[in-house]
């Protein structure tokens, strides 16, 4: 499968990674090579096979739905690039 620059642009947008226009053709070419490699999977007969959800057959453990920690606002915000008045600050989202 060949990926064109428009598709590369769309994927970059979906992934929220800024890619300059002049870098798109090379990116599209790399995607095409990788997807070409992946295309081998079409040779496999997967009729009747369930997609794997868990590599070790196990039922996930359950626990009581209760609060197990909290009151750590300072620790939670400590690594934020911009934290103000107890909140994460971001550029204006709504006009």
């Amino acid at each position: 499968m060949s990926i064109d620059t428009e598709t590369a642009r769309r994927v970059a947008k979906l992934a929220r990674i800024k890619v300059e226009d002049d870098a798109l053709p090379a990116l599209a070419q790399e995607f095409s090579a990788i997807l070409g490699f992946i295309e081998q999977l079409n040779e496999v007969d997967v009729e009747g096979i369930e997609p794997m959800t868990s590599v070790t057959p196990q039922r996930l453990k359950r626990r009581k739905d209760v609060v197990t920690d909290g009151n750590q606002q300072a620790a939670v915000l400590k690594n934020a690039p911009d934290a103000r008045e107890g909140f994460f600050a971001v550029p204006k989202v709504v006009e």
């Binding site: 990926i3 994927v11 990674i17 997807l35 992946i38 999977l41 079409n42 096979i49 997609p51």
Partner: peptide, 23 residues
């Protein structure tokens, strides 16, 4: 990240991601 985004995107999920999980 972008290859992953592509194989999970609408229209390709079954062809790539689900097929890979079957394999």
């Amino acid at each position: 990240v972008m290859v992953g985004t592509y194989v999970l995107s609408a229209g390709f999920y079954d062809a790539y991601y689900n097929r890979a999980r079957k394999v």
